[in-house]
């Protein structure tokens, strides 16, 4: 595809799309939003890039190796955050018992471990979307 308009528009919009995705991820724990929907938006930004600029350029920016690493990292990160509670002598995924402050209504960065978990899940979802897209596209040729 060599459409000038398409390329310009995607190049212009991409930062905003990614920003919006991150916004949704970061607001997931105490307000409307969430890691899954945010991660999908971030992933879709990357998919749009691959669609317009070509699969090769897309996978140059984000190699298969990187997406695999991020995917594994996201899952392991979730497990590690859960283990914080166990190591602090309370139960798995526990927030209060592991000594982190609880969330306060209206304050964004106050949800204890949940924000960190949300970040991990968002990364995982974004990279999974890219992996799925690449897997479907590569089958074609």
């Amino acid at each position: 595809m060599s459409d000038f308009v398409l390329k310009r528009v995607v190049a212009l919009l991409l930062p905003f799309v990614q920003m919006f995705g991150l916004y949704v991820i970061f607001h997931g724990h105490l307000s409307p939003g969430g890691s899954f929907s945010g991660g999908i938006i971030v992933g879709l930004g990357m998919i749009a890039f691959s669609l317009v600029f070509g699969l090769e350029k897309g996978s140059e920016k984000l190699t298969e190796r990187t997406t695999t690493l991020i995917e594994s990292f996201g899952t392991l990160w979730y497990g590690a955050m859960g283990l914080v509670g166990v190591l602090r002598g309370s139960s798995f995924l526990m927030n209060k018992g592991s000594g982190v402050p609880l969330g306060e209504p209206g304050k964004l960065y106050s949800g204890g471990l949940i924000l960190l978990i949300t970040l991990g899940v968002g990364l995982k979802v974004a990279s999974t979307m890219v992996t799925l897209f690449n897997a479907l596209m590569e089958e074609e040729d």
Binding site: E71, S72, T75, L76, G79, L83, F92
Partner: peptide, 14 residues
């Protein structure tokens, strides 16, 4: 959790 983590460590080990 241990089984899930092991499952996801494996792809890193290619």
């Amino acid at each position: 959790v241990m089984l899930l983590s092991t499952a996801y460590i494996l792809p890193v080990l290619t």
